[in-house]
Simulated scan of single mutants.
Amino acid sequence: MTATVPSEKPADDSAAGSGDELGATDPATRLTPEQFWQYVAELGGRAEPEGFAALIETLAQLRSAAICSFADHLATALYALDSRDRMAQPIRDTADGPDSPAFPLSKEVFLYARLAVVVAGRETWQRVADDPSAMAGTWDLGAEELLYVAPAAFAQRTGSDWTHRTELDHTTGSNADGWA
Rank of each mutant, 00 (worst) to 15 (best):
A15C: 10
A15D: 09
A15H: 13
A15Q: 13
A15P: 03
A16I: 05
A16R: 00
A16T: 11
A16F: 06
G17V: 03
G17W: 00
G17S: 04
G17E: 01
S18H: 12
S18C: 10
G19P: 00
G19T: 09
G19R: 14
D20S: 05
D20Y: 11
D20P: 02
D20W: 11
D20F: 10
E21H: 11
E21F: 11
E21I: 08
E21V: 06
E21K: 10
E21M: 06
L22H: 07
L22S: 04
L22Y: 10
L22M: 05
G23Q: 00
G23D: 00
G23E: 01
G23M: 04
G23A: 01
G23W: 01
A24D: 00
A24H: 09
A24W: 06
A24G: 00
T25F: 13
T25L: 11
T25N: 08
T25G: 10
T25P: 00
D26E: 03
D26Y: 10
D26H: 08
P27Q: 01
P27T: 06
P27C: 04
P27V: 05
A28F: 08
A28P: 00
A28H: 08
T29V: 07
T29A: 08
R30S: 06
R30M: 07
R30W: 09
R30L: 04
R30F: 09
L31E: 04
L31D: 05
L31M: 11
L31N: 02
T32E: 01
T32H: 06
T32N: 05
T32L: 05
P33N: 08
P33G: 08
P33W: 09
P33I: 03
P33K: 14
P33S: 10
E34P: 04
E34F: 13
E34D: 12
Q35C: 07
Q35W: 07
Q35H: 10
Q35L: 09
Q35E: 07
Q35Y: 05
F36V: 05
F36H: 04
W37M: 10
W37G: 01
W37N: 00
W37A: 02
Q38Y: 12
Q38N: 14
Y39L: 10
Y39K: 14
V40R: 01
V40C: 07
V40H: 03
V40K: 00
V40D: 01
A41I: 12
A41C: 13
A41G: 14
A41N: 10
A41F: 11
E42I: 12
E42G: 14
L43N: 00
L43W: 08
L43F: 11
G44K: 07
G44A: 07
G45W: 05
G45H: 07
G45C: 09
G45I: 02
G45F: 06
R46D: 03
R46N: 12
R46V: 14
R46Q: 15
R46L: 13
A47Y: 03
A47T: 06
E48A: 15
E48L: 15
